[in-house]
């Protein structure tokens, strides 16, 4: 067996063991489960930061700043002159480092500056995001209540559109808490939104079930096919 196959085999064997360890939780919480659970958290917390440094900070920020993107040709000339403006990246870098003052009781206000700045940027992006997303949503909600297809009245389409518009309005009305009194028409209509919401939640539940079961299927497939075969090959070798 070459080294590549050995590593792949080890990967499947350990993967199956890890899966069984997690599934052992179904019987009872146990040390085997807790060990692998902690191992997972450790790996997950290290992976993200490393990839941010590797795939963003280094190639997009540090390399241009240090001039490492400038190529020196064999005759000593350079592909482009060094751009000192890249040094301006030091400003957001230093500013971003203020996050770490969160640990200092005395200087934690510095961390709040950068948190505030980030919140401000997210806020502005969210404003633009809302209009870009909600515009077509609102436009497509204005559906014709009487639909003609090839010159003939389509009862089904008309019913669907009417139901769509009614559901939308009734559910929107259900969530109006700021005004409207119990005696008003708006107040009287509010309970009608509930059953429609329940239909939506039912669809949501049905879909959620599918998502969760899909994960289970994938794991069982891995254990039954890959892991059992890997264990078989090891036992066979032994």
């Amino acid at each position: 067996m070459d080294s590549s196959s050995a590593w792949s085999l080890a990967s499947v064997l350990v993967g199956g063991l890890a899966t069984l360890a997690i599934f052992s939780f179904l019987i009872k919480e146990n040390a085997f489960y807790r060990f692998f659970e902690h191992l997972f958290i450790g790996i997950a917390s290290g992976l993200g930061p490393m990839l941010i440094v590797r795939d963003f900070l280094w190639p997009n920020i540090i390399e241009p700043m240090l001039g490492l993107t400038v190529v020196t040709y064999p005759d000593g000339t350079q592909s482009e002159p060094y751009e000192p403006l890249y040094l301006l990246y030091l400003i957001p870098m230093v500013f971003g480092c203020l996050y770490y003052f969160i640990y200092s009781q005395r200087y934690s206000w510095l961390a709040k500056l950068v948190i505030g700045f980030t919140l401000g940027a997210s806020g502005a992006l969210a404003i633009r995001g809302f209009f870009a997303e909600a515009g077509p949503q609102i436009a497509s909600s204005f559906k014709p209540l009487i639909v003609f297809i090839d010159g003939n009245l389509s009862l089904m389409e008309s019913f669907n559109n009417a139901l769509f518009v009614a559901t939308l309005l009734l559910v929107l009305n259900y969530f109006f808490f700021t005004f409207g009194k119990e005696g008003s028409l708006q107040g009287k209509m509010a309970p009608l939104g509930r059953p429609l919401l329940m239909v939506c939640f039912g669809a949501f539940f049905g879909s959620t079930v599918m998502a969760r079961l899909a994960l289970l299927v994938e794991r069982v497939q891995f254990v039954v096919h890959d892991w059992v075969a890997a264990v078989g090959s090891v036992v066979g070798l032994g």
Partner: peptide, 24 residues
């Protein structure tokens, strides 16, 4: 994923997405 199917349908209706694969 299946869990986001109900949400994805609103984008399908508005034409913001043109096609959808629902879970497995």
């Amino acid at each position: 994923t299946s869990i986001t199917i109900p949400e994805a349908y609103i984008f399908l209706d508005s034409g913001q997405i043109k096609g959808l694969l629902e879970g497995i």
